[in-house]
Amino acid sequence: MTGAAMRAVRVFAFNDRSKVAVCDLPTPTPQPGEVLVEVKAAPVNYVDLVTMRGEYQFKPELPYTPGKGPVGVVAAVGPDVDRVTIGDRVLAMAEYGGYAEYCLAPAAQTYRLPDEVGFFDAADMSLAYDTAWMALIDRARLQAGDRVLVLGATGAVGRAAVQLARALGAGQVVVGVSSADRFPELRRLGADDYVEVAGDRLRDTIRDRVLEVTGGHGADVVVDMLGGDVFDGAVRAVAWRGRLVVVGFATGRIPTLKMNYPLLKNIEISGLQISDYRKRLPERLDECFTNVFELAKRGALTFQPAEAFPLDEWHRGLEALESRSARGRVLLVP
């Protein structure tokens, strides 16, 4: 089977979608430490858009096939691989290659799926639940009873963070939304209250609202996917000895911080780049997915409906994510 032709999305130039096409390629053969996955679904991630524009901190060598974290069935394994076997249903946290019929992934970053988790639900997990878990548990050291503020809560990582915070013992979950009409969907996932993160004077309004809904306490944990003016307000809303985790800058501006804030309030500001964990601490990711899969098996997590596009319609999938018109996790299905 390896060596036969497969179809894959190929990027031949950055920031030019006219230079992206579905091509026929030889199906790769897994080398030692690798797994070949027959892809059943690949999530379309914001980081895929940034990488295709050439704006991500790590640039792949051109041409390349985008797509992080596909799900599928193990089709072949390298000669030394015993972590998974042919026929296993898996989530494969490959850095690239998911927008294809077959994808190579490191065996150490391939996770066998429980029977209770279907392919589309697993694709919803991909790059969202691992990022949220690491932000809450590893970086922020979530404690039972903590008041948690999730900024960018309607996105994939945000939705995951809301549910994981609730399932893992947070005392209160507050979400940042662009408008109040986005709150009901997050309340169903476990959110208790909201703060609006659109408008003027966010430096003051976010702080004031968080203090209001937490009874003056502030947020013990902040998970921030937005950056910009939202970060400026959120850092003022952190409670004494609180922890703010920077996950991204979806608003576009990378904020700066006067370091008297951490000093005077004894707070911590840290960052999370999930790919490094897969390379440097794979055992921590094993712990993460074991925990997330167990919560899924218990029915403690609610996954988004899929908005699936055929591989040939990759451009529609990107546009649905980019325009924020999708009302579910955008997937490509070979």
Rank of each mutant, 00 (worst) to 15 (best):
Y102A: 10
A107Q: 10
L136T: 00
A122Y: 03
P114L: 02
V74I: 12
I137D: 00
A76G: 09
G72F: 05
T131Y: 00
R141H: 15
L149P: 08
P106G: 10
G98F: 05
E116V: 12
D124N: 15
L113C: 06
Q143H: 13
T131Q: 00
Y96F: 14
G69K: 01
G69P: 01
R89K: 14
D124L: 08
R89F: 03
P79T: 11
D88F: 08
Q109G: 12
A75R: 14
D146T: 03
A135K: 03
L104T: 04
L113R: 04
G98D: 05
E101H: 03
V77F: 09
A140D: 10
C103K: 07
P114G: 02
G72P: 04
Q143I: 02
M125G: 02
A94M: 07
L136A: 01
T110P: 09
Y99V: 02
P79W: 08
A76V: 11
T85I: 13
Y64A: 03
M134C: 13
G97R: 10
L104H: 06
G67Q: 06
G118L: 04
L104C: 05
K68G: 14
Y96I: 09
V90L: 09
A94W: 06
D88K: 03
D130P: 03
A107W: 13
G67K: 08
G69Q: 10
F119Y: 15
